[in-house]
């Protein structure tokens, strides 16, 4: 109960300092128009934008772009937010001026970050209108936090922010000319070189190599690494991810190599060694490949024991 007057007291200087809502709005419109629809915030402007009597809504992007802060996600996300803000400038003025896009950099708006108690960036807050006909039915004044679970791309950002803007944000992903260009180029090269590629396409062993490589890589958990976006190796150089349902990118290479070697050893024993007409050399080969199988299998088992600690069996290692 003591909290309420205290809060009021705290916000008092703000209210006094703040100009009336109308003039704040005008200022914001000007600022937005001058910078591609994106307002650069400092502490006072932040107060202005989140005016307690605002009739507008705003998306505020809190970030730390200074290289000293070493925030890589911030750098990844910043262009997306700017692109969406730019797309918003194409909306007719009547709707455009009821929603603002703003960026607050940590180094310019340290006070804001402290006030919000933010310790990580980037963060996007959506402030709904507090007054006027765009005031939400729930009367919610606390900002909504944007959910980054869909990644840092502009597409989902525009899609989700559109829920809070008067009209949907007309964001269109730019056409990736480079991608289409390379695709067309590769297609052209293949088409022009069809004479040289045709023997490869017709060769069964080229297909066999492709097939075997695919299944080796897939059974070594390649799709897991791709879908989960696992790093190639963990922190402090460890390359085996702990845990049974987990793995790093390097494990794919190692495991598929082990599988491939074992597979090749079996094939050598079955297909190649019998053609050796020199009995002692053949014996040598048989011993060699059997040894390879035994050793590599032990290595594989020991790898598996690292992942699955309860596994009771082991061979050599």
């Amino acid at each position: 109960m003591l909290l309420l007057p205290l809060l009021a007291l705290l916000s008092l200087p703000f209210c006094l300092a703040a100009i009336s809502a109308e003039s704040a709005h005008e200022k914001l419109v000007k600022l937005a128009a001058s910078n591609n629809g994106l307002i650069k915030l400092d502490d006072s402007l932040y107060g202005l934008l989140t005016h307690p009597k605002r009739t507008w809504s705003a998306s505020v992007h809190l970030t730390a772009m200074d290289p000293r802060r070493r925030c890589t996600p911030c750098k990844e996300f910043d262009p997306s937010f700017s692109a969406v803000a730019k797309a918003w400038t194409h909306v007719p003025q009547a709707q455009r001026d009821t929603h603002f896009f703003a960026t607050a950099d940590f180094d310019n708006a340290m006070g804001t970050f402290q006030k919000l108690g933010l310790q990580s960036a980037p963060v996007v807050h959506i402030h709904l209108a507090a007054e006027g006909d765009r005031r939400p039915a729930s009367g919610r004044s606390a900002p909504i936090v944007y959910d980054f679970s869909n990644g840092f791309d502009a597409g989902p950002l525009a899609e989700q922010l559109s829920a809070y803007t008067p009209v949907a944000i007309p964001y269109k992903a730019p056409i990736d000319f480079a991608k289409y260009g390379t695709a067309a180029g590769v297609a052209l090269i293949i088409l022009s070189g069809i004479r040289f590629f045709l023997p490869i396409l017709r060769s069964r062993w080229a297909w066999a190599a492709g097939t075997v490589l695919t299944s080796l890589v897939m059974t070594a958990g390649f799709m897991f690494v791709r879908i989960r976006g696992m790093p190639a190796s963990g922190a402090n150089g460890q390359w085996i991810a702990p845990g049974y349902q987990n793995q790093y990118g390097q494990e794919v290479q190692v495991v598929s190599f082990v599988y491939g070697l074992l597979s090749a050893a079996f094939l050598m024993l079955t297909l190649v060694t019998p053609y050796q007409t020199h009995s002692s050399r053949q014996r040598l080969q048989v011993y060699l490949w059997s040894g390879v199988i035994f050793v590599m299998f032990s290595v594989l088992i020991s790898l598996f024991r690292v992942k699955n600690r309860g596994y009771p069996f082991k061979l050599l290692l």
Binding site: T219, A220, G221, M223, F224, R226, I227, R228, Y244, Q245, N246, Q247, E251, V252, V255, L300, F304, K307, N308
Partner: peptide, 8 residues
């Protein structure tokens, strides 16, 4: 998705 220990 499946990690390699599951395959093994």
């Amino acid at each position: 998705p499946t990690a390699w220990p599951s395959f093994f």
